[in-house]
Each structure stands twice: as C-alpha cells, then as structure tokens.
Design a protein around this nucleic acid. Structure first.
Lengths: 339, 339
DNA sequence: CTTGACAGCGTAAACGTTTACGTATATAAT
DNA sequence: ATTATATACGTAAACGTTTACGCTGTCAAG
C-alpha cells in the first residue's frame, strides 16, 4: 500500500500538517523537523497522491489534446510532428499530457465536455480549426483556457497560432506558373476546415494574378488521407484534354496519393506532371522524387501553442495572443522542370 | 463555477447521497426521485469532478504510455503507429491516455515513479524493452499492472507482446542470400535493446545456415534515427573490397538513411546495392524504390498491449499473458534483383 | 514584569465524491 | 394485532491532500 502523509506523521509523532509543510518547503517548520520528515519520507518512499492534490489544489497540471480524426487511426505524420512538439513542451513545464481522439461530429463535444466539465485538464489545445468551430465556441462560452492551431470565422477573439495558408498557396501556384504550367489542379481539404478557405483563396489569387481562368473541374476535395489523394489523382489524370499538368494538394499525404496515382497512370512525377504538397512533413524529403511542399514548422507550432497555453495557465498575460506564421515554399524535384 | 452534487442536492432538497445514487443508477432511489435528479443535473449541467472520483474510487481510468526517446522529439513513425493503436483501444474502453516522454537513463525511473507512486494511472505500457530493463524490474517490484511490447533477459514473468525478430531477420537475410548476396551488412540497434539481440541472432543464424562467415566489419550499431542510418551507410559504402552488396537495418528509419547515403555515393538502390529495413512502417511503400522490410503489425500491437492491460485492470485473468507474433517479410524493389 | 512578536506546531475544515450503515415509512406475512 | 421485509432516504466516514486558524512557548523590547 502506498505511504501517505498520515503514515509519516504517525512514525514521527507529528501532525499531518507539519509533514505536508515540511515536504512542500513551507515556512513554519523547524529545520530539524523538516530534516526528519524528509528522511522518513525518503525511507518510506512517500509520493503524494496526485488525485488528492488535484482535488485540493483545484488544478491538474495536465493539458489535454484531442486529435480530431476520422477513421480508426490517427497515425498521420502531421499529428505526430505536432504531438512531438506538444509533448516536449509539456514535459519541460512538468505538466502531463492527456491525449485522446474523437471524430468530428455530433459526439465530438462530449469529449471536450468530459475533460472540461470533469476538470480533468487545466487547458486544451484545439487543432484543425473549422469555420464555425463548435469546440471553440464551447470553450469560449465556458471560459476555459485553450489555444488553437488555426483561425476560425467566429467573430470572437481567442489565442491561436496560425499559418498564412493563402500566402503559402499563392507562392506555390505562382512557382508552378513560372514553371510554365497553365492547368493547375488543386486538391483541397473539406470546405469546413478553416485552412481550406485560406489556401483556396491563395490558389485563386495566384491564378487571377497571372490571368489564368479558374476552372472548377480542376478543384477537388479530399479528406486528407493518402487514399483520398490517390482517388482524386486517378480522376484528374483521366480528364483528357483538360488534364492538369500540375497538381497541388492541401497536405503532403494527399500529394503522395496523387503521386501514386500518377505513377499508375504511367506519368513520371516531375517530368510528365508536377505535384506539390503542403506541410512539408519530414518524410517528403525521402520520397521519389522528393516532393515540393509548403513548409510549416509543425513541431515548433506544437511547442508554441503549448507554451502559450502554459503561459495562460500561469496567469500571465500573453505578449502575443495571436500569431500568424509565414510559410515557406520548398521546391524539390517533383516540380523542378519547365513545361 | 462548476456544479457539484451538493448544488443539485440543495436544489431538490435531498441528500448528496441520493443524488449520487440516482446519477450512478444505483438501487435505493425511487424512480420519481431519480428522474428529478437527472433533470436537475441536465439543467444545471452537472459533470462529476474526476479528481474527486479518482480519489474516492482509488482508480483513475487512465493508462500511461511513456515514450522512451532520446533527443528532443518523438516523431518516430514507429511510435506514431503504436500510439494510434493504443489511443484507439483506450478510447473504446473509455479510458484516458496519458502520454509522456522520458529519455532512457538515470532519470527515467523518476517518470515511472511519478505515475506509479502518484497513482496517476492505473496501468502502464512499456515499450522498447531492454535486456535488463529497470523499468520492468521496478514495476514488478511495485506489483503495478503493466504490459510490455518486447521481452527481456529478466527471469521474471510478465505479460508482453513480442515479435520474433530472430525469425524475421533470418527470413530477410536468407532472402538476400537467395538473391546472390554474400556481403550482407547489418545495421543493428544498440545492444541493450532486447530486440537487437534477437535480430542479431537471426542474422548470424542465417549466415551460418548458408556457410557464410560472419564478418564483424559488416555489423554496425545505430540509434534508430535516419541520421544514424545515413552515417553508417557512408561508412559501409567506403569499405573498399569488403563493401557490402546488401544492407539490412534494424528499423526502417535507419534503412532510409542508408538509402540516402547510397544515393550520395552514386549507388542505385535496388541495382547497385540492396537495402532492407524492419518494421514496415506505412511510409516505406512510398519511398523510391519501395523498401523491402520485415513487417510487424505495429498498430495491432498497440491495440493488443493496450487490450491486455485493460483486461488486467478489469481483474480478468489473461488468456494468453505472453504473445509472440511472427513477422512477415515483405519484399519490394529495394532488394528485388539477383546479383 | 508586562506586552508583543514570532517560530513551531496541531486542529479542523475544506476539495467532491462514494458507500457502509442507520432510520423511517410502507407493505406483506404471521 | 405484531413482526418481518423491503423501499427510500439521510448521516457520516472515508479517499489524501492543503491551508486558514488557533494555541503554546520563547525571547526581546518596553
């Protein structure tokens, strides 16, 4: 059985309060007593019961991260990178990290309510924001501390870290145009995702800036998995005369799917067709050919949203509640030729 | 302020106990009263305080997963897959998952002690077992529920899921020998890792079975990152006459590093040199050329160790406390030619 | 000598649950 | 009628902390 304050108090014939004070280095304990307590605690192997501490202190020193995922798994390299940043930042602050997965949909809020109302965590990280994000609306209504990765269409003000996807896609499409492409397909994410809006805007902006008409047939939507990319790729490469010579995808995983489709259709990526992604996850350097992508520092963003949240939990004012990062185009061989 | 049992009890002018019983569907409450309580709870938005529940019930409904990671990040695709399995299995059981990262070393046990002695979690998942695994020794000594992914050299008995790495590497090396290779390098993991032992044994066993002398110069050790693979690859490909014609690595990430080194040395992977990995993480299908690898069902293993642990926590006897899975060789283009 | 300050400690009330036990009322059995 | 049983509830103790408050003794200042 685990040893409690009670046990130590009994052994030393002092009160629980004294033991508690001694262990927590609070004033009001004679140095000699403190030493005795520390010694006894070490010998008996005392460790505070965290549930009791949480109940008493009314905080958990834990932050929550709910991964919004369709399907059975969340092994998306994007989330892994993000989780890495979050995990390291929480560990440094001596916080715990509670991870769970909930599919977006009507039961999604239940997962949040559980952690929030059950006071299971002190703060939450919200990722993959949506236009009208019910999670954020809920957290704002509850006045619960959180930081988001991404913006929303809500009028409310809240702390977030975002990436200027419009500018990212603008750069990417402009690059493709400079390479001589005129039929540039865009495989975007579902419209309710906030970043899909921005990236679409960037796509259209770049086309417009170069006098290229916007062709709805070249716009596809996919659920961000490799398979979605593959399916869209198969469709795009069967378009006959309007077949695109370049495809950009809203994330790298889908771009990889498009690459697979291209290969299956007998197209050599980087020669017969240009393909580019978004995120610049580590693995795109290792594909063949290496994939052009719009870099966002996912690991750093994970750290950043986490650190912002930790600041808030410490009660500090955020120097910069809302951060918008500029993404950077990384050109690799998958788009490295001129038509 | 969150609403408590007290609040509801006061509103309905009943005792806290009755409210508790009503909400938890315990007998001893009139149906009419129960309805009143449920209604009030819904209206006031009651949600149980989980810390209080944990303190009282003496369990947390949480399992812990400590990722043993050197360096600043844990964005290893292997862990992502595993985490996916674990995450989904815990979610289905309505358990929470506490994730943290601790580098192996002298402070490692502190991380475990924190969760165990602080009764922060009900059970732990231990991965990447080592020959004399202090974590497992500790958990056994504390009689704390856990399930390991991997075996150890400890004489003690404990529940685990393992993969027969010896057989895996035997198959792989035999495959390479059949392809005509005689100089087969092996880039293994650090010797203290248990699976390194098994895989090395399989490597030597295959060589011996085919009368190929074991050459120490062809054995390298690496820390499982892509960079380690790259470094070892650079060294191996500078060996002159004893240059290997095939390299197997103890995980896919290192194999990818070896591939990069090979390319830089002007070798065409799959033609000038054969390269193979271990794990068969999803991304190896997408590399160029696709990488031959020994498949272990990481996602399933994640689920499995988690489900075993959940069984134990429910107090059930495990039908099969120790599971040894057979890995499967997946031949792809990176080794798909005969010398 | 009194007064005040202060160090060192104990008491007890919280934090929000769960649950063993006791008690009152109503119903059924004798 | 009395007794036994069941139902519906309340009381209170527990889970292991933290901390406001109060008490005692010591010592220096007045």
């Amino acid at each position: 059985m685990p040893v409690t304050l009670q046990d130590i108090a009994q052994e030393l014939d002092v009160s629980i309060a004294t033991v508690s004070r001694a262990l927590r280095n609070m004033p009001g304990v004679a140095e000699s007593t403190r030493q005795l307590v520390l010694k006894a605690a070490r010998e008996q192997g005392y460790y505070p019961n965290l549930a009791a501490q949480q109940l008493q202190r009314q905080r958990t020193d834990t932050i929550g991260f709910i991964i919004p995922t369709f399907g059975p798994r969340f092994s998306d390299p994007f989330f892994s990178e993000l989780l890495a940043g979050i995990g390291n930042a929480t560990a440094e602050a001596e916080f715990d990290l509670l991870v769970s997965t909930v599919a977006p949909g009507k039961d999604e809020l239940k997962g949040y309510r559980r952690l929030v109302a059950g006071r299971r965590v002190d703060g939450l990280l919200v990722v993959r924001t949506r236009r009208q994000d019910q999670r954020i609306a809920y957290l704002l209504a509850e006045d619960f501390p959180f930081v988001a990765f991404g913006r929303t269409d809500l009028t409310a003000n809240f702390p977030y870290v975002g990436v200027d996807g419009q500018r990212g896609l603008f750069q990417l499409v402009e690059h493709l145009i400079h390479q001589g492409h005129r039929h540039i397909a865009f495989l975007n994410a579902p419209a309710e995702l906030m970043f899909a809006q921005h990236r679409l805007a960037g796509y259209r902006q770049a086309l417009a800036a170069h006098g290229i008409p916007y062709d709805e047939n070249l716009l596809r939507l996919g659920g961000l998995t490799e398979t979605d990319g593959y399916r869209a790729g198969r469709q795009l490469f069967c378009l006959g005369t309007q077949k695109p010579t370049a495809v950009c995808a809203s994330n790298d995983l889908m771009a990889l799917g498009v690459m697979r489709a291209a290969r299956e259709c007998g197209l050599q990526v980087g020669i017969d067709v240009a393909i580019a992604g978004f995120d610049d996850i580590p693995l795109v350097k290792m594909t063949h050919p290496p994939l052009t992508s719009v870099h966002q520092p996912i690991y750093q963003i994970g750290r950043l949203i986490c650190e912002k949240l930790l600041c808030m939990l410490r009660g500090e004012e955020l120097a910069e509640p809302q951060t918008l990062l500029l993404p950077e185009l990384v050109v690799r061989e998958s788009t490295d030729y001129r038509v």
